[in-house]
Design a protein around this nucleic acid. Structure first.
Lengths: 308, 308
DNA sequence: GGTACCATGAAGTAGAACTGCATGGTCTCG
DNA sequence: CGAGACCATGCAGTTCTACTTCATGGTACC
């Protein structure tokens, strides 16, 4: 009977490409990974990988076995989830990764909900961008992650994960309450405004620039920051205009003028978990709490809209 | 991630009922089994079994987990089989259990066939009755077993095993070449004959008695032996009449008079393997060789038939 | 051509799993 | 009812496995 831990390492090698990466990801030495994998080769009596330059590359057989290992590991995890589910055991530690805005506006509400209903569940939250969150999810450092898709971005659904829609979040513009930019009627009016935008390499920053350019505006980026709360602060003090996700609109936009945008752009937020763990009761409870929190958000449909 | 070895032990506990049996089956001390299983309980934080008198009984959750463990182990084994299959690797050791007659007439031929085609495959044969063979199969002591069903007996297909028909083997009567019993025309003529029968508690012995009684004969069992070669020897020397499986008819019945029986009774022979291992190339090769050996047996349809 | 990177081996270490032994409870049979 | 067999389990000590550390050699990159 093949050793499951070694199969896991093979699967991780398949995913992460190098033994060093596997080692680093799982806090072990490269030597240990190497030893375990060559042990696996010896016990299967099959060449699973070969040296290729300074790295190592899986053979066909190795890649095939790695995929099957994933199946086995998934089934094992679902067995574990089923066990917990059968006795309705919402408890233990649930490790979550999320990008920032849900941590501001959604997670605190969800946590409160969970503390009421499931006092034995300890939720741990880590702020990660979507890519890093997925990485941590697959490496078993998180049980659930929150992700987002912007219009025009391609949706990446990863093998072995279970994705569930959470919220369609409108993207808003915030103008200062007063001052020259408070009187803008169209996006084009803001062509010369000082913008507070997210860094260009981020999903948000990319979308913001794409949207503005589509409207014929090449923004003057006075503030380059990924922090939406800081952006709002800069708007409030009259130093910038900015985009803001609807999710933080209800609580944090005092002293500003939020507006809906032409074309009604939205981002889609979702949760993702490893497929095997999808039945885990703690996970189900967390997702339910998140949906409840999302449902409690204020309705933004009455907001003024910027012209074309 | 749950420890697979501990899950295996849980599954074995489910199957074998007591920890002692699990320990004995896998050559470890009862203490080790107990420690590993309570370790499993602690890491799942679920009560998997409870003391019940001097033994232990699985809870619902424990039984459920044990079944899921079986799924995981099956999938793991099939991954292993697929790996070997992908590189057509007929080799290593194949452990086989069989009841006696195939060992006489089928296995040697099959082994010769395999030695030709697959010199790297080492087949190890153990003589076991069907029940013991199944037990060893599930305990991973054998990869394949041979079994038989007699008319009227119920077919037991066990969970997690893959069964494949091998041969319909006619059941024959052997009479001495000469002497008073050589002239019998019907089964009833043998009412007072000295029989060499298999022990009553065996499948064969049970069928033999059932068949004779259905024909109105209460046999006088002079020799009670499970060895068909000995039975034939006793017939040849004129001391008994006996049943004999068709499978050994071609080679070992010299000096006797084999006859087909009224109603043309047959036993069905089959091979069985763990479902997960069904794709293993060594297993496929062995089954193919067995079928080839079965096909090479002499045709008995021309044999004389005893009257009703 | 120096430097960073990667896989791998040998030697020693830490931890997991096992054995042996002892204990206590339970069933069975005389 | 009592002796003996049977079973699970805990503790102490041993064995074995997986790991770390360190060193080596090969490879890619600037």
């Amino acid at each position: 009977m093949l050793n499951l831990h070694r199969l896991f390492l093979l699967h991780e090698l398949h995913r992460l490409e190098t033994m060093s990466a596997v080692a680093q990801t799982h806090s072990m030495s490269p030597s240990a990974v190497s030893q375990q994998l060559s042990h696996l080769e010896r016990e299967t009596n099959v060449t699973l990988f070969e040296q290729a330059g300074r790295r190592v590359v899986l053979t066909d057989a190795g890649a095939r076995l790695a995929r099957r290992a994933e199946d086995v590991l998934g089934l094992l995890e679902s067995a574990e989830a089923e066990l917990k589910d059968a006795q309705g055991d919402v408890g233990g530690v649930l490790r979550v990764a999320s990008f920032q805005t849900p941590l501001i506006a959604l997670a605190p509400v969800a946590i409160s909900v969970l503390e009421q209903g499931h006092p034995d569940l300890r939720v741990e939250l880590a702020q990660r961008e979507v890519e890093g969150a997925y990485e941590g999810l697959l490496a078993h450092r998180f049980e659930v992650i929150l992700g987002e898709d912007y219009p025009g971005g391609q949706q990446v659904v990863r093998r072995g994960t279970d994705r569930e829609g959470l919220l369609r979040d409108p993207l808003l513009l915030v103008l200062p309450d007063s001052g020259p930019w408070s009187r803008a009627r169209t996006v084009a009016d803001l062509a010369d405004a000082p913008w507070a935008l997210d860094p260009e390499r981020t999903r948000t920053g990319l979308w913001e620039r794409t949207y503005l350019r589509a409207a014929g505006v090449e923004p003057w980026v006075r503030f380059d920051t990924p922090d939406p709360l800081l952006q709002v602060h800069l708007v409030r003090s009259g130093h910038a205009v900015a985009f803001v996700p609807g999710i933080i609109a209800s609580e944090h936009l005092g002293g500003t003028r939020p507006l809906r945008l032409p074309g009604d752009p939205h981002r889609s937020m979702y949760t993702a978990a490893r497929a095997g763990a999808a039945g885990h009761p703690s996970l189900l409870a967390f997702r339910a709490a998140l949906l409840e929190a999302a449902g409690a958000l204020s309705d933004l449909r009455g907001l003024d809209r910027l012209g074309e």
